[in-house]
Amino acid sequence: MAETGRVAGRDWAVEKDLGARSSRVVDGLRAYRMITAMWIRSTMAYRASFLMTTFGNFVATALDFVAVLLMFSRVDELGGYTLPQIAFLYGLSSTAFGLADLAVGSMEKLGRRVRDGTLDTLMVRPAPVLAQMAADQFGLRRLGRVTQGVLVLGYALATVDIDWTWAKVLLMPVMLVSGAAIFCAVFVAGASFQFVAQDAAEVQNAFTYGGTTLLQYPPTLFATELVRGVTFVLPLAFVNWVPATYVLGMPLPLGLPGWAAFLPPLVAAACCALAGLAWRAGLRSYRSTGS
């Protein structure tokens, strides 16, 4: 019996080696899909709590927009933008961020996993740690935020005055996908930083939650240095400011030319590549320091 087990085991080992050599990206997506499916089932074990937190997530973000409405109960314009125009910026920022938060938001828990040692349990599995970490604690309740973003965007599209062209129509989905990718990159970069400073998880809130809040208001409100910073250093401006001002027919921030509105996919790709490098560096540092 021992003999047959071993012989069979050896053939299987060859198979395993072949399996392990498939592409990392494909492997990662596959693991991500499987683990998120597990978490969704897990969430459904507490259906009432799930409904309540999803609703809570929706209300939380909705109240955030109520604040904007309150402001416009006192003024007609803010920084030269009308309420529908600001709602347009707001909806784009909130939807893109909501999608990123849904996809990889749990990465902000990385520091805790490092501290309590449970990251190690992910590292002995045959799947990229990044994918496993992104799927960890996958929270469908975050759909609440996406819903709010989509509703605000819907309201904006229904009320705002836009000279639609085919280019602008095409830009809409491109903007949302690129914006979500840029925010995903910020989440991953923030998690990478937590490999070095596990207790400093809150720093990334300034760029994630802070970032989406910033983008909900028109760029004309902010100091030029700040706008430059979020355009050229941490290019959050490409989530909505740059492309959305073009769609709205408003002047682009920093006097950028019109074609800059079509850069978001390139910027998003660059951001993701850099975040990937940061992640590798972070993981390498973890594997050499163990802390």
Partner: peptide, 21 residues
Amino acid sequence: AAGVFTNTVFGLILVYTYTAL
């Protein structure tokens, strides 16, 4: 330290929106 940083960033964003308001 992380909290101080984050509160400062949020403060900055709010200051600009309040200024416009």
